[in-house]
Design a protein around this nucleic acid. Structure first.
Lengths: 224, 224
DNA sequence: ACAAAAGTGTTGCAAGTACACCCATGC
DNA sequence: GCATGGGTGTACTTGCAACACTTTTGT
């Protein structure tokens, strides 16, 4: 198979990953400080070069693992940027991904979280990539169940509504939201409650994939 | 800029394009017969290797130009396939696109049109790519105006409905369809009619982009 | 006059939106 | 007993789906 000599123009293929999480009513992305030029010292998305023996998806997962101790992640391809001028060093074609995790159960080694509404001065065109990922996430929230990827296994309906409000950037009506979620038939009540200071405890629910609503067409939920 | 030596793993980057058109109540794709192994003699999508000095989008346009005398085309990136085993010769990362044209005003040199419902034995994983492109097209039809890309500049409402029926794979109610289209406020009546044999002539309309409905987020409408 | 496609309105149903009060708990 | 978020139902509006007949032309 691989005996034939390479005859094709060769170039570098990279991956960049927009890793989202929700922390206290804001949507955040994981960023790392660049060590080298170009853009040394500035913040950038975690990324890396795709090696010859791995798939592009695997490269994206590897990059995530290098930055965080991720155990469970939703990962979906976003867009491929192929302008020759993107990286000043060399021609690089970059395949971008976005990913969703629940930050509570996560150690992040190298990177740090930043609110998407307050990003500035990212390296390369990474600010645009984050913005595009946010648009995609916003759209998908309305016809898939990816929102649940940002929550722990058991969650309250208020926490769920919070995820929707943070991503959509607007307040939602509590009664309408709950009715809609419940009639989708994707939630399971538990017998447990979350005690939250001095208010009435909130019932915990779990997510169960149900008829009619699909998670995605082309996305991976990976458990290491 | 480009003075620094390449330090990255290099590999081949290719583009494949799914070019759709509608011909007599069927959705068709442009296919070419492969001259060389692998898959010599089988039909495949038009494609090619991305050269170092062109962007990936430009490579897709170049491929289209090589196969057809295209003058006006809607082109949108579809998905990037990066499994090491896709091409048996060498590691190739393939960026796929789909495109829409009105076949009437088009010379196709090398390729030929094939009904998407009757494809068999395509090279590589091209059958899957066509299927995925079809899904994307179907979805986008419902919230964008890409359907108009398959029509000539002036068209009848019946022709428009036909495009929708062919892509969605189902019959639509004439009255509901017309009402919906008209209230979108994207059609312009002309004073001309299309005479179609021995029936009542149909009024020709033109498309004008209007408020509220966008053509796409990330698509190109290119005029050469 | 007839065949064949163009063109035109109304009604019922479902989904979405707006809106306000009682409940359970900790302090 | 009061402050705090948890939890619940109804009325209105809007968009979608179903449905049949008249008009214009060519032969």
């Amino acid at each position: 198979m691989l005996t034939q000599q390479k005859t094709f123009t060769q170039q570098a293929v990279a991956v960049d990953v927009v890793l989202f999480t929700t922390i206290e009513d804001t949507l955040q992305v994981l960023l790392v400080a660049r060590q080298q030029d170009p853009y040394a010292g500035q913040l950038s998305l975690p990324g890396g070069i795709v090696e010859r023996e791995e798939s592009v998806d695997e490269a994206a997962l590897r990059v995530l693992k290098e930055e965080t101790a991720i155990t469970d992640v939703y990962l979906e391809q976003l867009y491929t940027f192929g302008e020759p001028s993107r990286d000043p060093r060399d021609r690089v074609v970059t395949v971008t991904y976005y990913a969703l995790v629940n930050a509570e159960q996560l150690d992040t080694a190298a990177g740090s979280w930043h609110a998407v509404e307050e990003l500035s001065d990212l390296a390369f065109d990474h600010q645009n990539i984050v913005q595009y990922a946010q648009e995609r996430l916003r759209n998908k929230l309305n016809y898939t169940t990816i929102g649940f990827q940002l929550l722990p296994e058991r969650f309250t309906l208020t926490e769920l509504q919070n995820v929707y409000e943070v991503i959509l950037g607007q307040r939602l009506d509590k009664r309408n939201f709950r009715r809609k979620m419940l009639q989708l038939d994707i939630l399971e009540e538990t017998d447990e409650f979350k005690i939250n200071g001095r208010q009435r405890p909130a019932r915990l629910h779990t997510f169960r994939q149900a008829k009619g609503m699909k998670l995605q067409e082309r996305g991976l939920v990976v458990t290491f």
